[in-house]
Design a protein around this nucleic acid. Structure first.
Ligand code: MN
Ligand code: MN
Ligand code: ZN
Ligand code: ZN
Lengths: 143, 143
DNA sequence: CATTTGAGCTAGACAGAGTCTAAAGCCGGG
DNA sequence: CCCGGCTTTAGACTCTGTCTAGCTCAAATG
């Protein structure tokens, strides 16, 4: 089901088939939401997606935005980034990478995974398997 | 001001002076809260701290629990762990370490920093300095 | 001893993110 | 055309966390 990720930005026309490749029926709302989030490499909260939808003249309900982003994350089309206690960010970049998080201004910047070489991971606790390794480098403005 | 951390668990009698070593006036409520959180190596949410206070017969308001945990974190007495989009965990272990986070049951387990050797960190973006590196290994139950 | 002052505590209102529910819409197959 | 399931929706609701405004209490002052 799950396919390789298209390179960003994903063209409008390519979105329905991209959704289908991830086992997601391409409804009008889902295509709109994917169109916004996958339009470039970025990190958006659900609320930011909702705002941009409204700006684009697309009227999608809050429940659908939350449901859809959750579905996209579950199917590996986008990735959740948990760095801010107040909200989840949805990341259009699903390639392996990490983040700088500026605690002063909330800015989130990608770091290629190759730039943070980890020699080896500790064994996951019994009865569990590692699913992902998230590295967050918290930075602060100088001065 | 900020002193080395006492080894866990911190004895009841040692708490007031520990708070003072971190520049915190040891009020009755603060001593109670520290007594609960520092009683062992653990990760508790603000709400869990509040519940345990009530169980112990200590009556501390919600506002004070939130304010106090925030103050403790700011002064380096405890550490915030952001892995769950729903709530912040307060970690009584302030030694350098990382976490396994079980996404199925919410369980949080410490990993000694030495067990996750990182060769080198990428440079922080211009105008910023790295303050902390948080590594979260998300695990899932097998079967 | 009486008064002032200020840090800290508190109840409860408030805010923001996210979830849930119940009803309505849509759409494809029979 | 009708049915049945999937999807969307408005709005109520929950939960974590913040804020406000008044109160407490102890130390400092006179
Ligand atoms: Mn939430
Ligand atoms: Mn919150
Ligand atoms: Zn990213
Ligand atoms: Zn820990």
């Amino acid at each position: 089901m799950a396919s390789a990720t298209a390179t960003l930005p994903v063209e409008k026309d390519a979105i329905p088939s991209l959704l289908q490749q991830h086992g997601i029926s391409p409804t009008a709302q889902r295509v709109e939401i994917a169109g916004i989030l996958l339009s470039k490499c970025q990190h958006l909260s659900a609320d930011q997606v909702l705002t941009r939808l409204t700006e684009h003249g697309a009227s999608v309900s809050k429940a659908t935005v939350y449901n859809t982003l959750g579905l996209f994350a579950e199917r590996g089309l986008v990735r959740q980034v948990i760095v801010d206690p107040a909200k989840v960010f949805y990341d259009s970049n699903v390639a392996p990478h990490h983040h700088f998080y500026n605690v002063d201004d909330g800015n989130l910047i990608d770091v290629n995974a190759a730039e943070v070489p980890i020699e080896h991971l500790p064994h996951a606790p019994d009865g569990t398997v590692a699913e992902a390794v998230d590295i967050v480098i918290r930075v602060r403005n100088t001065g």
